[in-house]
């Protein structure tokens, strides 16, 4: 086994273990920390794939920003250990979780069927900032712009909700 493969195996096992921690840990703060660890390890997987730009963005956006907001909200609401078995909608939630899991598994199976393993030639500028930017602004321009509009709508919506709450709390 080459050193790259050994490293990948190590990181992959750790990633899956951390992901299991997210789901299985009863404490919401610990779950969120496991998610941070999972996302950080995913960034290492990206580095092993030579996708340095994506790895850096993964850490900046997910591990460093979005997860901080998750933790922020969990700490602000002061959530305690939570037993989902006692919830009101437990059967609905359980059904939805199974449905999501099955859809994901089917998608993964379909993807793996058409994939070829290894042996591909890697271009010299693969994963560089220029390569990622070029494909983002040419081949994927429309999805990219649509995503930005989606995010803008979410931001406007969040501001509107916060404003509404503040106005109604005034005497």
């Amino acid at each position: 086994m080459t050193m790259g493969a050994a490293l990948f195996l190590l990181v992959a096992v750790a990633t899956v273990a951390a992901a299991l921690g997210v789901v299985l840990h009863p404490n919401p703060v610990k779950s969120a920390i496991f998610l941070v660890v999972t996302l950080f390890l995913l960034a290492i997987v990206f580095v092993l794939l030579e996708a340095h730009m994506i790895a850096a963005l993964q850490v900046i956006v997910y591990a460093g920003a979005i997860m901080v907001l998750f933790l922020f909200v969990i700490m602000l609401l002061n959530l305690q250990d939570d037993d989902p078995e006692r919830g009101r909608h437990r059967y609905v939630l359980r059904g939805l979780a199974w449905l999501g899991g099955v859809v994901l598994a089917v998608e993964l199976a379909l993807l793996l069927r058409g994939a070829t393993m290894g042996g591909g030639e890697v271009p010299a500028d693969y994963g560089s900032a220029e390569a990622v930017a070029r494909s983002l602004y040419t081949d994927f321009l429309l999805p990219f712009e649509l995503t930005s509009i989606l995010l803008l709508v979410a931001v406007v919506g969040a501001v509107l909700l916060a404003q509404k709450q503040r106005r109604s709390s005034l005497p």
């Binding site: 963005l57 922020f72 900032a129």
Partner: peptide, 25 residues
């Protein structure tokens, strides 16, 4: 010597928040 040096710096400095948040919690 990183091609994405500045992104690396931003990534690492964004992780510095966890010490503060977790120390507080």
């Amino acid at each position: 010597a990183l091609d994405i040096g500045i992104l690396y710096v931003l990534a690492m400095s964004s992780l510095a928040i966890y010490g503060v948040v977790l120390g507080g919690w």
